[in-house]
Simulated scan of single mutants.
Amino acid sequence: MELYQHFRPEEQPFIDQVIDWRDQVERQYMPVLSDFLDPREQLIFRSIIGHDESLTLSFHGGYDTSERKRALLAPFYESTSDDDFNLTVLQGTYATKFVSLTHRDLLGTVMSLGLQRKKLGDLIVKDGKFQIICDRDMAMFLQLNIEKIKNTRIDLKEVGLDDILTPNHQWHEKDGTVSSTRLDAILKEIYQISRQKAQQFIEKEAVKVNHRVVNQPSFTLQPGDLISLKSYGRSKVVDIMGETKKQKQRIKTAKLK
């Protein structure tokens, strides 16, 4: 399929899924709601649906700047609302005097239940509280099975979307040029480290792209990719804007402050 050549081989199953959803909407005239998608998957979804005027594609993750969002694909004449995304928010509190809770702690606890990451939206830890954005149908399961985090008892209760603790995410965007869109070259540009050091981090499995460990320095990055470098923080590829006269790649990246 010609469509595949624009994406990575490992993204083909998701591409097939999007095509199946599109065909299902066109065949059954009913909306389709996806699991939670990362930014790269959202970009792929938009690319495949394109400007098809017979369909309406929208995304919602609970709040405007959410990272993980659900997609709702519907016939153009179908009226949809935020309620159709079937989202809820579970909130818990913990004693900040006795325990320090991080996003990693919360994610680890939830994943230990055997859930797939795509079944959950953003996880937020802020001001002595934490929140889990999820499908409404999953809320009861989480409430029954999450009783402790780091040996500290917690109590989960549902709150409204208006009560989401919006994270103070500040992304610093930067334009630059790189010799190629290889992972090691872009790490060098974003984190201002040597290419050799970038390769060492990658080979030691200290780098994740879209939440998956990548151990190949030659891995090619594309717009929408999220990057995590252990101890250095998170970043993302915003856009790849073509070659310069010296045959370097012009890119726009962003780093989380």
Rank of each mutant, 00 (worst) to 15 (best):
E2K: 12
P9F: 15
E10K: 13
I15A: 07
Q17F: 00
I19A: 07
D20N: 14
D20Q: 13
W21H: 02
W21N: 01
V25G: 00
Q28D: 15
D35F: 01
D35N: 10
F36I: 11
F36K: 06
P39E: 06
R40E: 04
R46G: 03
R46V: 06
I49R: 02
H51W: 12
D52A: 11
E53I: 08
L55T: 01
L55F: 06
S58M: 09
S58P: 07
S66N: 04
L73C: 04
S79M: 12
D82K: 13
D84L: 01
D84E: 06
N86T: 08
N86G: 00
N86P: 02
Q91G: 02
Q91M: 10
Y94S: 01
Y94K: 04
F98Q: 05
S100C: 12
D105K: 07
S112R: 06
G114A: 07
K119C: 08
L120D: 01
L120Q: 05
D122R: 05
Q131N: 06
I133K: 04
C134M: 07
M138S: 14
A139D: 09
M140H: 13
M140P: 09
F141L: 10
L144F: 12
N145E: 07
K150Y: 09
T152H: 15
R153F: 15
R153C: 09
R153H: 13
I154C: 05
D155A: 13
V159P: 01
V159I: 04
D162C: 02
H169L: 14
D175N: 14
G176E: 08
T177W: 07
S179Q: 10
T181M: 09
T181K: 05
I190H: 00
Y191I: 06
Q192L: 10
A198Y: 03
A198C: 01
A198Q: 01
Q199Y: 03
Q199E: 15
F201L: 11
E203F: 11
A206C: 11
A206E: 15
A206I: 09
V207E: 00
K208G: 09
K208M: 05
V213G: 10
V214F: 06
F219V: 07
T220G: 09
L221Q: 01
G224N: 03
S231D: 13
G233Y: 03
V237I: 10
I240F: 08
M241C: 15
K245D: 13
K246H: 12
K248V: 10
Q249P: 01
R250P: 03
I251S: 08
K252S: 11
K255H: 14
